[in-house]
Simulated assay, not measured.
Amino acid sequence: MVSFSSLFVAIAAVSGAYAAPANVTEGFELMARAGTPSSSGTNNGYFYSWWTDGAGTATYTNNAGGQYTLTWSGNNGNLVGGKGWNPGTNTRVINYSGTYNPNGNSYLAVYGWTRSPLIEYYVVESYGSFNPSSAAAKKGSVTCNGASYDILQTTRTNQPSIDGTQTFQQFWSVRNPKKNPGGAISGTVDTGCHFTAWKNVGMNLGTNHNYQIVATEGYFSSGTATITVS
């Protein structure tokens, strides 16, 4: 399995490129870890992706429909999980709701990949103690669904990706101000609004979409999240 490589490592900041977990149906040898093993696949009509480096204690659970629960503790290691679709699209309007309670470095984001070219992207709705936009080059701003977002871009050099170790671009929209964590949270992300804004500043996604999920990530932190995606 390809490990989760983060912006904490790359630029001492928020998480960066995390690779698609190997699908257990494709011969992935499950490694012993605290909590649930890394995996991806389908559940109740949704694609899910879950990865942990095993350094902390974490449990990812697929619930009914588009809901998942993630708990993590130990203030150690890196983990990410969420539900959505595979493949993603350029026009999907994503709704999410639930609870998000991070303690430390974490974020809640629409997250995905494209190929041709290989691009990793994030629409960050909320985050814990670190603002990811402070560690990337700002390219502009956009208003989507009545909220303002900073548009940012970073480069990952020889890092894990859905296609193995590669050099690729990361595209970001970071909500400003963020939705406050620490309890109930909900919102709508019009991916087409963000993707068009990125294109307008010269940030072009690939023509071939891979997965597109609402992800909860934790890095050397702890917390809980129960999120429903639709």
Rank of each mutant, 00 (worst) to 15 (best):
G56D: 10
T42Q: 13
F8L: 10
E29G: 14
G98K: 07
G16A: 09
G98S: 12
N23E: 09
K138R: 15
W113T: 03
T196N: 15
I162K: 00
T25D: 14
L152Q: 05
Y121I: 04
P117A: 12
S221F: 05
G104D: 12
T57R: 14
P160W: 03
N43K: 08
T91E: 11
A184L: 12
T226C: 10
S5N: 06
Q170G: 09
Q166E: 12
E125Q: 15
C144K: 02
L108N: 00
T91P: 02
Y100P: 01
I213W: 03
V93E: 05
K139N: 13
T42R: 12
F4T: 04
G202D: 04
M1K: 10
V2K: 04
K178R: 12
L7E: 10
G65A: 08
W198P: 00
A58S: 14
A34C: 15
V229N: 09
G164F: 08
G41D: 06
S5A: 12
I151F: 00
N176C: 09
K139P: 08
F47Y: 15
G45P: 09
G35T: 11
T154K: 06
Y18Q: 07
T157F: 09
V142W: 02
K83T: 09
V142C: 05
K83C: 08
M1Q: 07
S6H: 08
F4D: 06
A197H: 09
I162Y: 00
V124A: 10
R92W: 06
S186F: 08
S230R: 09
Q212D: 07
T154M: 07
G202V: 04
S97I: 11
V174E: 02
A136Q: 11
K179C: 08
T207C: 02
N180C: 01
N200Q: 15
E29H: 13
V2M: 13
Y122K: 04
P21E: 04
A64V: 14
W85M: 02
F8N: 11
T216V: 15
S6Y: 08
S116P: 07
S222G: 15
L70N: 04
S148K: 13
Y122G: 00
Y68R: 02
D53P: 06
G140H: 00
G54Q: 10
G202F: 04
S186K: 10
V124N: 11
S5Q: 06
N131S: 03
N78P: 02
Y60L: 05
G82S: 14
